[in-house]
Nucleic acid binder design. Structure first.
Lengths: 203, 203
DNA sequence: CGACGATGTGAATCGTGATTCACCGTCCAT
DNA sequence: ATGGACGGTGAATCACGATTCACATCGTCG
């Protein structure tokens, strides 16, 4: 009926993903029931199962998509030639992470901390590990080069991921969708990160 | 039948709490179904409802009990006259937290990070906030005294709570109940904390 | 003794969502 | 035109654990 590629909607599959993302961004994973997703996408419950074998699979895919975009951004930020030292790169990665998360706190919460399906949890865990490992690699570089003090890079990286996450969704979750002042928070977090990795003052 | 106060069991109420704690310590909150708790305590499902109006209430009480003990220990550690600077106190608090958590990683995970009832989540949140506020107060003291560099104490505190938590239950959760080497982890975390709050070298 | 409250029993019931399935249309290939 | 694959429908079903409730049991008190 509808034109094959025009107005408001793509394929049902895409609409379901969009709907799931939108609902998660509003009310978190909990608000994204199969019924709600289907309704939002304008299809029936059953349609979902034509494209995924379970709700979990849909969300695993969604998480993968969203997180991989985030990862890309962070990686790019860390790899930019504007930064020369490992400390700067670590800071850039986490600043990117923070400012993006603050743009959509609810979604960030869902991605970082909300209770989810085991299937989805596995996806989240995998990405967390990736973040951690990326940071650890940067830290190792810095330590080896003597820019950063001796430390266990893996542990520092884990603590940074957790610390930044908590600082963002912890204080954020009580708040509505209007972060008080993202720039201030990001700056303060940057300072925390710099100190935590043992880098000196801002360059 | 059994002696009123002798061998293996106190009141049913107490046995239910013990059972819930034990199960949570083994398989987390998820493993602690009403049926499992009742079985472990040697009573029937219904007995639980003679003492709490819901499973959530039981767990809220359990969390409160356990967390308040932890809080006591941490507070005591931070208040000890052995420590003079704010930095030392912060470090002592978090070291206490870490080493205790590492003693029972599964339970720590349940207390810190596992998905739980809203009722229980509220309890957890309250304690997290308390930890955070306690740390923030110490940090403020240090900053005011000039021992620590200027910083947002609340944000630092939040990041520390999150960072230490992640470092503990993140890398820990994949492991069985035998932490590789608690002392090493605690020492490394201490160093992280010292750097993160901007304290100098170890005293 | 007999009533009564507190406690315990455990099978039946409920609530909440995810998941299934018998039944269409539509569209293309033969 | 016709068969059948590809979606789609949505009410019925299922799974799973918490919760209820009609029925004991026991200890205490008048």
């Amino acid at each position: 009926m509808a034109g094959s590629s025009s107005s408001a909607s793509g394929t049902t599959r895409a609409r379901l993903l969009e709907a799931a993302l939108a609902l998660t961004g509003e009310g978190g994973y909990a608000a994204a029931s199969v019924a709600a997703i289907a309704a939002q996408a304008g299809v029936s419950n059953g349609a979902l199962y034509r494209h995924w074998s379970s709700k979990g699979e849909l969300f695993a895919e969604l998480f993968r998509t969203v997180c991989s975009r985030e990862l890309e951004e962070m990686t790019a930020a860390g790899a930019s030639p504007r930064h020369t030292t490992a400390a700067e790169r670590v800071e850039a990665v986490l600043t990117t992470f923070s400012s993006r998360a603050l743009r959509n706190p609810r979604l960030a919460w869902a991605l970082i901390a909300e209770p989810v399906d085991p299937l989805v949890e596995a996806e989240r865990l995998a990405y967390r590990r990736t973040y951690r490992e990326g940071l650890a690699a940067l830290l190792r570089t810095g330590v080896d080069a003597g820019d950063l003090p001796p430390q266990d890079p893996d542990l520092t990286a884990a603590a940074l991921v957790g610390g930044v996450g908590e600082a963002l969704v912890g204080p954020t979750s009580p708040l509505a969708d209007a972060p008080p002042d993202a720039a201030v928070i990001v700056a303060a977090l940057s300072a925390f990160v710099r100190r935590a990795i043992g880098a000196g003052d801002p360059g």
